[in-house]
Design a protein around this nucleic acid. Structure first.
Lengths: 203, 203
DNA sequence: AATGAGGTAGACCGATCTGTTTACCTCTCC
DNA sequence: GGAGAGGTAAACAGATCGGTCTACCTCATT
């Protein structure tokens, strides 16, 4: 847990309302008055707790980022250490599948936010690039453990598949984008010398 | 050409200004007053020509869609009919590479627009889904010509790679996303029984 | 010479935007 | 029992939002 516990009850309600509205309707289109009203809170309280809409946006993205990281690591590194590293890589797509289904009906929240925050100085931008970089590093580490011939390249490809599947999941033009991404990932793993099941890893 | 020629000079300037502003700063964040000012035109003229901001957004997306289709088909089906169908599929990534470099510094314009248009009744939504569906159909047709074992599946995978590369191109966290997508596409082509060069196609 | 299309200039409308302020209430902790 | 933190309620500010309107100009076509 991060500073979530440090949030005041009112701040908690504000952040929950903001998360739903920002993701569901867009950041620019949602005003602070609406957020305060949905949260059952005064606008003054909102500004006392978060200082500005910019900061509230950054807090929304930060918490979403945190939840995604916890979700992914829990599903991938969970319990059974017996699972091979290649299997762990494939599991990131299983984790993504469920995440997209339950949290991403409108596509990637970070990509969507990036579309609305062109100003590079916006505090939310750091969160967005941090989220993407973290995913790439996480996948690269898994690729190294899997004994990939070129872990950097494999990580880039896996990020590409993750991103494409997440975005396409919100567009409803391709049937099962995450499954397609997973099967392509398997192909890349084979090429890199990892056959899937247990064992077969260097190190 | 479509109705582009039918546009009055002022309408042309409005659409150009709108395209740059909508893509560069976001749709919701850009007001009609700013568009009119940038176009060197009166707000009344804007409303006389386009009727509403909604319609102007749809026109912006429609023209962007048209330009992308022309760009892609021209680069893929250009001149030398001697090129094999598998090569044509790979060429879609070459076309994308240049398109992303010169037109997509901030990611896919359609994905970005979708993020800002949650209302399914917005006229721009039809353009967005139409663009994605067209790309999938186009790639599927190429896959059929290439004698792919499963053209539908291949098309889904190719769309996934296109989308992922386009989006990642605007995030600057992975070095050469389109090149990575292209190399993965080659892998998928090999799996589908198409070896690249000329010949080797069924039919 | 008249007409209508395509413009400019600019005021105006009501609503909404982010953000601030004053006044008052209710706890908890020291 | 005083202080401070965390609130509510509501008015206020100035800017901007999408959109309308009147008045006038210019030009090509008939």
């Amino acid at each position: 847990m991060t500073q979530a516990a440090e949030l005041t009850p009112a701040a908690r309600k504000i952040l929950d309302a903001a998360a739903e509205l920002f993701y569901g309707r867009g950041i620019t289109a949602v005003g602070v008055d609406l957020i305060a009203k949905e949260a059952g809170v005064t606008k003054k309280t909102l500004y006392d707790r978060f200082g500005s809409k910019e900061a509230l946006v950054a807090a929304y993205l930060g918490e979403r980022d945190e939840r995604w990281r916890e979700w992914l690591t829990a599903r991938v590194l969970s319990g059974d250490a017996g699972a091979g590293p290649c299997e762990r890589i494939l599991r990131t797509f299983d984790a993504l599948e469920e995440w997209v289904r339950r949290e991403n009906p409108r596509g990637c929240g970070f990509v969507n936010a990036a579309a609305e925050l062109p100003d590079p100085r916006h505090p939310g931008r750091k969160v967005i690039t941090g989220q993407k970089r973290w995913l790439r590093d996480f996948l690269r580490e898994l690729a190294v453990e899997a004994g990939a011939a070129d872990p950097g390249r494999l990580a880039d490809e896996l990020v590409l598949l993750h991103e494409g599947a997440t975005v396409l999941g919100g567009l409803h033009v391709v049937a099962g984008p995450v499954a397609a991404a997973r099967s392509m990932a398997r192909g890349a793993l084979v090429r890199e010398g990892c056959q899937g099941g247990a064992g077969a890893q260097a190190q």
